[in-house]
Amino acid sequence: MSVRKAIFITGGASGIGRAIAVRFGREGWFVGLGDIDEPGMAATEALLPGGYSFACRLDVRDRAAWDEALDGFATAAGGRIDVVANNAGIPLGGALVDNSAEEIERCLDINLKGVLFGAQAAYPWLKRSAPGSCLLNTASAAGIYGTPGASVYSATKFGVRAITESLDAEWAEDGIEVRSLMPGFIETPLLDKTPHHGANEDIRSRVIAGGLEITPAADVGDAAWNAVHGRDLHTVVGKTAARLRFAARWMPGRLRKQVRASNRPLGK
């Protein structure tokens, strides 16, 4: 009898987290969700096979809460965790001088500190189920090249990329795979939020005005499945991310000129 594998996903109440949950649930995995949005998690669970999911309220900034969440999930999943998806994150845009100290600290705490805490908490569980276990971090195309009008957000996603690369080496001898997703603009509720407290335009409007494509969330679910089961350290998702990676590698000078010429901070 085959053992049902288990994945725990932060930010599982909507968007990318929900897409990952649905994709792995479709493959017969036991799916765990961690989020502060409890009604959203219930909606995600409704899309999963009955009896094969677990949800708990989790603020990723709380290190002790991470241990409690993974302990509870492992118990529900039969004592194993094969993948932890560090996906929870928030947007922050606008010129740096327009970002409040509170906004900066919140973005750093959730997007960066939350990933570090998640990796720490996940390690003993992933080591136990290795080889073949995986820490999957959601970075961003903003972690490929710094995005004008999103310096704090870009910094956090470059940080997630660095964490991924560091732990890929650090955990290799334990048989734990470490991967990241680098999506462009994805069809999620985050697009309908304003980039910072003083903005009067949502992110979606800026993306559309810039002529950039919005990638279906299901594509990220497929990319997550491929990342966990493939060999690539970083997986880009969407045409914007793919073009940006190509330009950053092969045409850095031209990319810099294009970025400087097109700079119009989000929310302006």
Rank of each mutant, 00 (worst) to 15 (best):
K5V: 06
I7A: 02
I9W: 00
G12A: 09
A13M: 10
A13E: 14
A13Y: 10
S14I: 13
A19H: 01
V22T: 10
G25F: 01
G28K: 00
W29G: 00
W29F: 01
I36L: 12
E38A: 10
P39T: 13
P39V: 13
A42C: 08
P49W: 01
Y52K: 02
A55W: 02
R61P: 10
D62N: 13
W66C: 14
L70E: 09
A77Y: 03
D82Q: 05
V84L: 13
N87I: 13
G89M: 04
G94Q: 04
G94W: 00
V97F: 03
E105P: 00
L112V: 07
F117T: 12
A130P: 06
P131H: 11
L135Y: 06
A139C: 12
G143C: 11
G146T: 11
G146H: 03
P148S: 12
G149K: 01
V152H: 03
V152S: 07
F158K: 02
A169Q: 12
A169R: 11
E170I: 08
A172Q: 12
D174R: 10
D174L: 10
E177Y: 05
E177K: 09
R179F: 08
M182N: 15
G184W: 01
G184H: 04
L190P: 07
D192W: 03
T194R: 05
P195C: 06
A199R: 02
D202E: 14
I208Q: 09
L212P: 06
A223Y: 06
A224T: 09
W225F: 01
W225N: 01
D232N: 12
T235C: 07
V236L: 05
W250L: 15
W250G: 06
M251L: 14
M251W: 07
K257S: 10
Q258K: 02
R260N: 14
